[in-house]
């Protein structure tokens, strides 16, 4: 059984039919990339999985269980965390307080302390700035914080919405390295990216989304070789 499965999911914003019957799976331990142009529905897909948006039709299953009956905050307790689009850090809270909020769903003091050390090892910069107000971090540091905060939930499934957005090329490399590292330690990842080339280099499989529908799905290798993908998303003529 897949860890995450979307079955014919339709989602709306008012009258806007943003997801028009999406089906996809994410297996335990995988990195799955979701690519597509602006407005294709990538963010909407992640919001639907995390429960911020409820599908009007179709089902979202986590370990085979329908998530329809859970509110967004309850889904976090089931092991799903998200790095939201635009980072969504709490600007007025300190770095340490943001990380505390990441661990809000947990009560195991010892485990939380361990994970704090772990994210500080991953992002030493955050350790230096732990008492700084998060709004004063640089864009790259805020991205690190958003990722670190999601890891503090010790998620089984991590949803990442454009973690490389707005970062300098060196930092993009670093972010993708980090994603692989997180994945190697056992976290399953669903990755939304504009930077399709990088995403398909670290992913196991990928889906291509176009105006609310999945138009392609293949292994990452297969997608990289696909002429349509090359033309539309990889900038290769």
């Amino acid at each position: 059984m897949a860890m995450l499965e979307l079955e014919n999911v339709h989602a709306y914003y008012g009258y806007i039919h943003a997801l028009q019957g999406i089906s996809m799976t994410v297996e335990k331990g995988e990195i799955v990339a979701l690519i597509g142009a602006n407005g294709a529905g990538k963010t909407t897909t992640l919001r639907t999985i995390s429960g911020l948006l409820k599908p009007r039709q179709g089902r979202v299953l986590l370990d085979g269980e329908d998530l329809a009956k859970y509110k967004a905050h309850e889904i976090v307790y089931k092991g799903v965390a998200m790095v939201p689009e635009g980072r969504g850090i709490f600007a007025k809270l300190t770095v340490a307080e943001n990380l505390d909020m990441g661990a809000y769903s947990r009560n195991d003091k010892k485990g939380i302390a361990e994970d704090l050390e772990r994210v500080f090892t991953l992002f030493p910069r955050l350790k230096e700035r732990r008492n700084q107000v998060a709004g004063t971090l640089s864009g790259g540091e805020q991205q690190m914080l958003a990722t670190a905060r999601a890891l503090m939930a010790r998620p089984r499934l991590l949803l990442m919405d454009e973690p490389s957005m707005g970062l300098a090329p060196v930092l993009v490399e670093a972010v993708f390295d980090t994603i692989q590292e997180i994945n190697k330690k056992g976290t399953t990842i669903l990755l939304v990216e504009q930077n399709a080339l990088m995403a398909l280099q670290i992913a196991d499989r990928g889906y291509v989304l176009q105006t609310g529908e999945i138009v392609l799905s293949d292994t990452a290798e297969g997608l990289r070789q696909n002429p349509m993908v090359q033309k539309a998303y990889l900038g290769i003529e």
């Binding site: 995390s50 429960g51 911020l52 509110k71 967004a72 905050h73 309850e74 976090v76 307790y77 965390a81 998200m82 939201p84 969504g88 709490f90 600007a91 007025k92 809270l93 307080e97 909020m101 990441g102 809000y104 769903s105 905060r149 939930a153």
Partner: peptide, 14 residues
């Protein structure tokens, strides 16, 4: 304080 900044992100924290 988190809820007062951003309700959706607060939900994502659980």
């Amino acid at each position: 304080r988190a809820v007062s900044e951003n309700q959706d992100v607060a939900r994502l924290m659980g």
